[in-house]
């Protein structure tokens, strides 16, 4: 087993998983919504970025200058994701967030939105996968006997920066405080002037933007296709679950743990056992810590 290699691939996977899970975790924590349409947001944002990228490719003057195309495409992905998030919020959160049985109903509503949206994407864009133009140029970085390509390196660096920013923002800003407050007690949150509906839009636009960013960054791993959101959704959910629903810190720790697990499994047992060890790990952790890793980090949470 090559330790250096395992570390590099663990970091790669942890970055991917962290980026995927953070949006799900924030949505759950602040809105109490398990957003099954997260995968749809992921796919839609990819298509948004692809449309813009396609247009840019047609313009000869800039089609090869990565530093122009890259940021515009990323921005397009983020904006589409945010718009998609707002739509999902308007459909699944706003009408029922103060009605009985919200958690189950919200889950099903987002599921229905995802079902409809995926079919619409399939009919509009066709079944074939799309790819984005290179976003981070065309360099390669050999580390030991691993070569990190521009896309991968760019994605890793951006996701680390992104996660750090998100954590910092959640910790220090008023908005972050509002989101955290809402996750603990929406009733009391409205008593300190936090508009649940407005914050809902806010959060969903933000997590949509995160999904969009993830979609663009990971477009080389999960190509853009109508069903491309399913794997990120399942991965994101399992990471968020292991981290303890609603804990951003927990999600990041979980992403690192699952990334390491997958890298180790691939190195020691073989790639086909990655899913099995992953779910076994989650099950074992949950049996001992019914509230996930956050249950260890934060003792004050309600049991």
């Amino acid at each position: 087993m090559d330790l250096g290699f395992v570390i590099v691939s663990a970091v790669t996977l942890a970055c991917i998983y962290g980026t995927l899970a953070i949006g799900i975790s924030i949505t759950w924590s602040s809105l109490g919504l398990i957003n099954m349409a997260y995968g749809l947001t992921f796919a839609t944002a990819g298509y948004g970025a692809w449309l813009v990228g396609d247009q840019l490719q047609a313009i000869d003057a800039i089609s090869d200058t990565t530093w122009i195309v890259g940021p515009i495409v990323i921005l397009a992905g983020i904006l589409t994701g945010a718009a998609c998030g707002v739509v999902i919020c308007a459909v699944t959160f706003i009408p029922i967030h103060d009605k009985p049985n919200f958690t189950v109903r919200g889950l099903i509503a987002s599921l229905a939105v995802s079902l409809i949206g995926t079919q619409v994407l399939l009919q509009v864009f066709g079944p074939r996968a799309k790819s984005l133009p290179p976003l981070f140029g065309d360099w390669e970085l050999p580390i030991g006997n691993v070569v990190i390509t521009a896309d991968k390196g760019g994605a890793m660096i951006s996701s680390i920066v992104l996660l750090a920013l998100a954590l910092r923002w959640m910790k220090s800003s008023r908005r972050g405080l509002e989101i955290r407050a809402m996750m603990m007690n929406p009733h009391a949150a409205s008593l300190v002037g936090i508009g649940v509906r407005r914050t809902g839009f806010y959060v969903m636009a933000l997590t949509g933007a995160l999904a969009g960013l993830a979609s663009v960054l990971l477009s080389q791993t999960y190509y853009i296709s109508p069903f491309s959101g399913l794997t990120p959704l399942i991965k994101g959910l399992s990471v968020a679950l292991l981290g303890g629903l609603g804990s951003v810190n927990g999600a990041i720790v979980a992403a690192v743990i699952l990334g390491t697990n997958e890298a180790l499994t691939s190195a020691l047992l073989g790639g086909q056992y990655a899913l099995i060890t992953q779910f076994l790990l989650i099950i074992i952790v949950l049996l001992f810590r019914p509230r996930g890793i956050a249950g260890i980090l934060d003792k004050a949470r309600e049991a």
Binding site: D2, F5, V8, S9, T12, L13, I16, N145, V146, T221, Y222, T231, K235, E262, A263, S266, A267, G270, G271, Q272, Y273, A274, L275
Partner: peptide, 19 residues
């Protein structure tokens, strides 16, 4: 023989195996 399973998140280990 290297075993993989859909979805493959990262082809790094496979390529390392190939080499």
């Amino acid at each position: 023989i290297t075993d993989i399973q859909y979805p493959v998140q990262d082809w790094g280990p496979v390529i390392q195996d190939i080499k």
